[in-house]
Design a binder for these strands. Sequence first.
DNA 1: AGAACAGTTCGGCCGCGGCCGAAGTGTCGC
DNA 2: GCGACACTTCGGCCGCGGCCGAACTGTTCT
Lengths: 227, 227
Amino acid sequence: MIRMTQAEDLARLAGLLADRTRATFCVALLDGRAWTANELAAEAGVAASTASEHLTKLLAGGLVVERRQGRHRYVQLADPRIGQLLEDLTSHAGPPKAIGLKQVTRNKALAQARTCYDHLAGRLGVAITDGLTERGFLSQDFAFTPNGLHWLETLGADPDRLRGTRRPLAKACLDWTERRSHLGGAAGAFLCTHFQDQGWIKRVGTSRAVRVTEPGHRALNDLLGIA
Amino acid sequence: MIRMTQAEDLARLAGLLADRTRATFCVALLDGRAWTANELAAEAGVAASTASEHLTKLLAGGLVVERRQGRHRYVQLADPRIGQLLEDLTSHAGPPKAIGLKQVTRNKALAQARTCYDHLAGRLGVAITDGLTERGFLSQDFAFTPNGLHWLETLGADPDRLRGTRRPLAKACLDWTERRSHLGGAAGAFLCTHFQDQGWIKRVGTSRAVRVTEPGHRALNDLLGIA
DNA sequence: AGAACAGTTCGGCCGCGGCCGAAGTGTCGC
DNA sequence: GCGACACTTCGGCCGCGGCCGAACTGTTCT
């Protein structure tokens, strides 16, 4: 019976998500960030030891990948396709009633513009990345050009200080609503906080979605040609 | 914490599939058929009482719908989208290695032409249905016209005998690779066996996929204008 | 009416798996 | 070096849930 194993595989995969704590981990990881084990433990409200065991299972199941770095264990979703699958599942998982407009528009808002850890993702994130590339500020391999560094300075950034940390100045971060890379790294984080400080974008409620304000639309158009 | 409930919903949905027996049920139901409780119990190798409990859970979870008929409880997937979701899951659930070409072509073969219980589904199934409709053999509401009955007789069928059973002669059966209905019922089953007897189609290995032979191509073109 | 059959409910058994705290390993910073 | 910290391993507790057989309801067939 070959089909038996198919059912078993399905059960095993589903079993990984069938636990409150592991599901909480996965939902958290949907933001695309790499989380540490302790952060996830706190998010789900369980002991570190418990979280460690769950992460080992998720890893063995291939849902997440890890990156050991010093005494930290960073974990993130293994593959954009896993993120897609999780989002499909959660969209079916909602309460049977009220499948309606709210969820859809909420998802649309997230796809439109959201934060990914500390920088901008979604359609807005890739639009910014495209704008930077078109203007010759960012090279194809996600490195800032001299012109790009100057542009950052005009916004009030100090490239040397941004580069002082371990963190790379610019980094490609994969986005699965767009299936393309957007700008992460120290520069991505700077732009996100700067845009917020200027009142160009506003967080929607407590979610990860953000909204571009009226002045924001004008500024982004002037700066990067984003309509 | 609103996001908590989201994780809980995900865990609840996954929990439905996280059991060997329920997963076996769902994989079986992927053929689109409505199964009785006993059939499913036999398929999974559990007692009828156990199957009954599982079906109640799947029903409550909205994964399946039931149709009570006499002393039978027919169960089938609630929605083509559920079938889609299950297929997505099983494609991720396979062994980590060998994700390659084989699976893809296998799925393509299934989408192309397959059996759905005892009749034909997939692209071939809907092509046959279209051919019957275009030639005026089948009405829009899936009933055979006088011409259609005569056509069945020319193939060697006995419409009166086919109608003798409880089973409807023609029945619409929803197909989720095509997202349209194809011909089920006694006539659908007759055509499937007849095509096989004539050597027009051949089962691929032990799977549900079928392949149209060379003579089959010619015959189907002559009979129903299927290229 | 009686027998056969499909499905359901209930009680009880059993094992799996999630949880924690305590103790242990490796890393970083002073 | 020492303490602080991130994480892991282990032992033990506990409850949930899957499983069955037995008894029951309701339908169909003769």
